[in-house]
């Protein structure tokens, strides 16, 4: 493998490989002999050895300083975000960009951990998502939809709703007292009268209300099941925008009908036929006008 010792390359790199045990036995033996004969090599070898440190121990101290809770929460969020459903396959840029933006304070978490500056929409959404599946308990807490790009709250809400499944909605609080408590909370934060009678629709099975925030503003999300299986949401947010009539669009593979009235932006969305959604939206528009 290696030539005669006298032609051996005695670079620092080679000497370091010798120190680090990266040479095979024959190379190592040959080099060892050469070092014996070569004072300059000995000197450089000593210097390189002198540049050694207990690196592994030092780096271990960093490991202990890692914010593991936050990292685990972040990862759980990414897993939910990228697994199945319609939230899948978003472009990297699209999903990474919002995370950098500073987000608004959220309600204290159970563990009392300080708000992670990079708290991502996905993480929080996933907390709702999985919480809903497991216990429904997390759904009671105000959550946060991170600030998306200027296209705004409708896109953020659509992404959020796209993560919903029938199972998620079934996990929402079933007791009327819990539902009422959530409704009252949303009503208070939003400053808009939200009663069960206003929110009911003959074609929709009312599943509950959640309070989210978008860009620091409260965002109420009322969840329904259409046809016993399709999640439909009515989202309401305070806005300074001028009133605007019903308009339809598609986001995240969902049909969306949105309008602005009396200082509030509304949207109804779900994977249901556009004409059905229009009818539902029209009914809510009348109810809230």
């Amino acid at each position: 493998m290696t030539g005669p010792a006298e032609t051996m390359n005695l670079s620092d790199e080679k000497l370091l490989a010798y120190i680090d045990g990266e040479l095979d036995v024959s190379e190592s033996t040959a080099l060892s002999d050469e070092i014996e004969r070569n004072p300059s090599a000995r000197e450089r070898l000593a210097r390189l050895k002198n540049g050694g440190r207990p690196f592994a121990e030092a780096f271990d101290a960093m490991l202990a300083a890692a914010p593991d809770d936050k990292l685990q929460a972040m990862f759980a969020g990414l897993v939910a975000q990228t697994s199945g459903g319609q939230g899948q396959g978003q472009a990297d840029d699209e999903t990474i960009v919002p995370f950098r933006q500073r987000t608004q304070p959220q309600a204290p978490r159970a563990k009392g951990a300080p708000l992670w500056r990079m708290a991502a929409a996905a993480v929080l959404l996933a907390a709702v998502f999985t919480g809903g599946l497991i216990s429904g308990g997390v759904l009671n807490k105000p959550q946060q939809v991170a600030e998306a790009e200027a296209s705004g709250w409708r896109e953020a809400a659509a992404r959020y709703v796209a993560l919903f499944s029938r199972e998620t909605l079934e996990g929402m609080p079933a007791s009327s007292s819990e539902r009422l408590a959530n409704l009252t909370k949303a009503e208070k934060e939003l400053g808009l009268k939200l009663s069960v009678s206003r929110l009911e629709d003959p074609d929709l099975d009312f599943r509950g209300t959640q309070l989210l925030t978008f860009a620091g503003k409260p965002l109420a999300q009322v969840a329904y099941l259409y046809d016993g299986q399709k999640p439909v949401a009515l989202c309401i947010i305070a806005t300074e925008n001028a009133s605007a009539p019903l308009a339809a669009e598609k986001r995240q593979g969902l049909n969306v009908v949105h309008w602005v009235e009396g200082g509030y932006g509304y949207m109804v969305l779900g994977d249901v036929p556009e004409e059905e959604l229009n009818r539902i939206a029209e009914r809510f528009r009348t109810e809230f006008s």
Binding site: M62, A66, L71, I96, R100, R117, M118
Partner: peptide, 23 residues
């Protein structure tokens, strides 16, 4: 994840950047 964060710290020297890099 802790190991990834540590590598992120070695590269960025900044905990927030390390978080972002891990994410």
């Amino acid at each position: 994840l802790k190991n990834l964060w540590r590598y992120g710290m070695v590269l960025t020297g900044d905990p927030d950047m390390a978080n972002e890099l891990v994410q």
